[in-house]
Nucleic acid binder design. Structure first.
Length: 934
DNA sequence: CTAGAGCGCTCG
DNA sequence: GTACGAGCGCTCTAGC
């Protein structure tokens, strides 16, 4: 080994610049076998190979290293917290490639260096200074102008793409000043990319002119009073501190604490075996061949990976078995720090939280599990309690097995908020909400549940247990085996930590494996844009809405509940009297027996369980002849309102916030709709007068109002567009009454002579079409003979032939592909479409409905995702979504601007991806309560 | 005693 | 035997 010194030549390659250049130069290539994005890695390897080939001969380096950035926080952020605050987030498909470029560098047997908290530029500066002092030559391979300050005294830059060397004269040519003055020029001019402020109003040109005139920045600032231009003079005097700070930001650090020396960077011969193995793993066929030729060996054989059939069960290849015994119990800060470092290194980590309950708003954090590499996962217990006998830790002490909560949060927060580390979870909205209550804003995220949903909506469920069975052939430890069930159920805090480690860490391990299996499939299934544009961005939006909650007035509900109870008791007495005996009015079974057996009413029909049907439609028919069923209908309405709304809703008022916090499931409905649970706030009564009064309990706090905006006839508009029905499209463009227009067209009744009955029928048909109309269904809905209903449908198809075509085409597509799609590319699988028997009828109607309902769902999702930014400056909060309606809480004097801003977003939500042939119209209302606003 | 199916009703 | 998509409260029963 030669000591670095005179005669030595050091090459320093700016690795990050290579990566970005490679990424932007190539199309988004993916690895064939699994869809892993590898475009940047391919470009990076190409550039390295070209570098190796070009750097032989007399100018060959004796020492070389590729230098990378590491960590998002550097000493510059301590100087100025907005440093690089403008930079855009790393592209989604680039992040997983960063660690691969490190591996590529090592495969080429080139030293690969980085240092936590330092930019590559600082390491390059330090090495260049060291090499210069040792009397050697240095070539910096980069085109970054920030590095030009280092040029001179044997240090040169090389722009690898243009193959142009830059020496002192080159720098002067570019900047108009010498390298040692470059920092001063940059400090004055600032840099918008890195968000270096500089002196406002002074650009590169002026800065160079000033520096060459005064020599140095310090001289210029000291003599600023001499400047003739008044504006410039004032800026230099007033912004002196800002300019001096800018200088410290652009000045490279030549004394970074490196744990290696120049001698460690001596050029090494590549190891052909190692390099070619890596290239084969990346499945670079052309590059492998080229490099094998250059090395004088045979290229590796890369199997043509057969494209796995989409939807076929596919297990993760070559992963270690899932073994809960092998997981790690993290007990102290040092151990946790090691896991965090690994996550930082890789750029991703699977995260799972354990809590005392299922309600994110009220539960407590009990522990966190992490997993970066399949098979290696840990659990950090934080809130476990001692069990009876204090034997949770095999006789150990709680403090020895569990680190303090705040200490762990302080360590985890920077990781979980690090924009350079992807946090992977299963149903991340849950974990994000829990962590938000502990002051951690988790981002960026990936969610295996949502990936599965984007891929396979309609095909199967997306819970972790189901996904684990399906894709990993593994049954996770059932939570019940830890918590028990029923009234002897315990919380996770009471689970012995040794058991908790197995369960919790396994969840993180499984999540990571699912991510590795499912994420690459997004590209293959062409749903990356759906996932990244319609599913994932909704997580933070919904989390915010849910955490904010809606104010519900307990007293109003309580008063109504009392009134309902009184009326119900009265009705119950009447019903019992009419029946001649007491029975449970709430039991359909007992009611059926009273009506059809005891009272002998004709027409009782038994269902498959042998019980009489006593649904509202049946009772309504009977009510014309009999008193009892009429009273039961009244009783049922009150019973429903009382139990589901006035009573149950009160239980959901959060004692801390005094508000109701629903939870939206993003992957609940197959069509892309959201589903609201615990409580369901998407089915609060509105159709009946009595029911609507429930909405009087949904109120705005003092000084605020509720504002409701809803899409008018959005599904029919989408139908008009998708099925290309000119008459409907025109009617919507002209703002006509769409049902009346349909009736007029079908029955030949002029619009000005339209009766409500004719309009009602047309309306039923319009909705029927959206639901995949059938003669039977329409007949039942309109209570007309089936033949008559069929005649209406025939007439409808005749007047609007596009509808029939749309329906037939949709069915044909579904039969051919087992799926249908929305206008935005959302895929809804229809596995039963080719089945025999009655289920094919269900599947056919669902297939007709799904693109329409799903497109409407996509549109309001897009509006919701854009909404926070659009109303950012208004004192308003988005609270609820009810499929085609958004409910806001707004300060009284901001109602009009809120309506204007929200309406604009909603009406333009389809654009620019889809240009609808019909306008989207949004109606708005406002009031103290939801009853008034709707 | 508990879990789950079935019924019925609420919404878009 | 049938309108599409959801969630939830109540009753009743099967099974521990």
């Amino acid at each position: 080994m030669t000591q670095f010194g005179k005669g030595c030549h050091l090459h320093l390659i700016d690795g990050s610049a290579f990566i970005f250049r490679a990424y932007h130069a190539l199309p988004p290539l993916t690895r064939k076998s699994d869809g892993l994005p590898i475009g940047a890695v391919a470009g990076f390897c190409n550039m390295l190979q070209k570098y190796v080939e070009d750097s032989s001969g007399p100018e060959a380096p004796t020492h070389v290293a590729v230098i990378f950035d590491k960590g998002s926080h550097t000493f510059r952020n301590d100087l100025y917290d907005l440093y690089k605050a403008n930079r855009e987030a790393m592209p989604e498909d680039l992040r997983p490639q960063i660690p691969l470029t490190r591996r590529a560098t090592e495969a080429f047997n080139i030293a690969c260096k980085e240092l936590e908290g330092y930019e590559a530029d600082d390491i390059i500066a330090t090495l260049a200074c060291q090499a210069r002092e040792a009397g050697g030559r240095v070539t910096i391979i980069s085109s970054d102008k920030d590095l030009m300050q280092l040029v001179g005294d044997g240090v040169e830059m090389l722009d690898a793409m243009k193959n142009r060397r830059i020496d002192r004269d080159g720098v002067f040519e570019k900047f108009g000043v010498w390298p040692e003055q470059v920092v001063d020029v940059q400090a004055l001019a600032g840099d918008s990319v890195d968000n270096v402020p500089g002196a406002p109003g002074i650009g590169i040109k002026t800065a160079a002119q000033l520096i060459s005139e005064y020599g140095t920045l310090e001289a210029l600032l000291d003599r600023a009073a001499e400047i003739k231009q008044p504006k410039r003079r004032e800026t230099l005097i007033e912004k002196r501190a800002q300019i001096e700070m800018s200088k410290r930001l652009v000045q490279l650090d030549c004394a970074t604490p490196l744990d290696f020396t120049l001698d460690d960077l001596e050029v090494r011969e590549p190891d052909p075996q190692r390099l070619l193995t890596f290239l084969a793993e990346m499945e670079f066929r052309t590059l492998s061949k080229r490099i094998a030729d250059a090395l004088g060996t045979e290229p590796p054989v890369i199997a043509e990976a057969p494209q796995a059939a989409e939807g076929a069960p596919e297990t993760a290849p070559d992963l270690p078995a899932i073994d809960p015994e092998g997981y790690v119990w993290v007990r102290d800060a040092a151990e946790l720090a090691a896991w965090i470092a690994e996550a930082r290194d890789l750029g991703w980590v699977a995260v799972d939280t354990e809590t005392t309950g299922l309600n994110e708003m009220t539960c407590d954090l009990v522990g966190v599990s992490l997993c970066c590499v399949a098979g290696r996962a840990c659990y950090i217990p934080l809130g476990h309690k001692l069990g009876q006998g204090g034997d949770l830790f095999g006789g150990g002490d709680l403090a020895e097995g569990q680190m303090p909560l705040q200490q762990a949060l302080d360590l985890l927060k920077p990781l979980l908020e690090d924009p350079a580390v992807l946090k992977i979870g299963q149903n991340m909205k849950y974990d994000a909400k829990v962590l938000a209550r502990y002051g951690i804003a988790v981002a960026p995220i990936d969610d295996t549940m949502l990936i599965s949903y984007a891929l396979h909506a309609g095909m199967h469920g997306h819970g972790m247990d189901a996904l684990s069975e399906r894709y990993l052939s593994h049954t996770p430890i059932p939570i019940k085996s830890l918590l028990g069930s029923g009234k002897s159920q315990i919380t996770f805090a009471e689970v012995p930590i040794a058991e908790a480690v197995k369960y919790a860490a396994e969840d993180a391990d499984i999540t990571l494996r699912l991510w590795q299996v499912l994420k690459p499939r997004l590209h293959r299934a062409h749903v990356t844009r759906v996932y990244e544009g319609l599913e994932r961005p909704l997580v933070p939006v919904l989390a915010q809405m849910e955490m904010h909650g809606v104010q519900v007035d307990r007293a109003t509900l309580s008063r109504m509940s009392g009134a309902f109870a009184q009326k119900m008791a009265q009705l119950e007495e009447e019903i019992h009297a009419l029946a001649g005996e007491t029975f449970n009015v709430g039991s359909p079974k007992q009611l059926g027996e009273i009506l059809f057996d005891k009272m002998g009413i004709e027409g009782g029909k038994k269902g498959k369980t042998g019980a009489y049907a006593t649904g509202a439609d049946v009772l309504e028919d009977l009510a014309t002849e009999h008193e009892l069923p009429a009273r039961v209908l009244d009783w049922r309405q009150l019973s429903k309102l009382k139990s589901t709304y006035t009573d149950a809703l009160q239980e959901h008022i959060n004692p801390e916030t005094g508000r109701v916090h629903t939870s939206y499931s993003i992957a609940g409905a197959n069509t892309g709709r959201l589903a609201s649970t615990e409580p369901n706030l998407q089915n609060i009564p509105v159709r009946s007068e009595e029911g609507r009064r429930i909405r009087e309990a949904f109120v705005a706090p003092e000084g605020k109002l509720l504002v409701s905006l809803d899409y008018s006839q959005i599904e029919l508009r989408i139908l008009a567009h998708m099925a290309q029905i000119d008459a409907l499209k025109e009617a919507f463009r002209d703002g006509q009454d769409i049902h009346a227009m349909t009736a007029s067209e079908m029955f030949g009744v002029p619009m000005d002579q339209m009766t409500s009955e004719v309009r009602r029928r047309a309306k039923a048909i319009n909705f029927g079409v959206i639901y995949g109309i059938s003669g039977f269904g329409l007949a039942r809905n309109l209570r007309i003979p089936r033949g008559e209903a069929q005649a209406f449908i025939d007439r409808y198809f005749e007047r609007f032939p596009g509808i029939k075509t749309y329906m037939d085409d949709t069915i044909a597509f579904a039969k051919a592909h087992d799926r249908v799609e929305t206008l935005f590319g959302r895929v809804i699988h229809t596995p039963e479409i080719n089945a025999k028997g009655p289920q094919s009828g269900f599947a056919r109607r669902a297939a007709i409905n799904a693109p329409i309902q799903g497109t409407a769902a996509d549109i309001i999702r897009r509006a919701m995702i854009r909404m926070p930014e659009a109303i950012r400056d208004l004192p308003a909060k988005m609270l609820l979504q009810v499929h085609d309606e958004l409910l806001f809480e707004v300060e009284e004097d901001a109602v009009e601007p809120l309506i204007a801003a929200a309406r604009e977003v909603m009406e333009a939500a389809a654009e620019p991806v889809v240009k609808l042939d019909v306008p989207l119209i949004v109606d708005a209302g406002q009031g103290r309560s939801w009853a008034e606003a709707h």
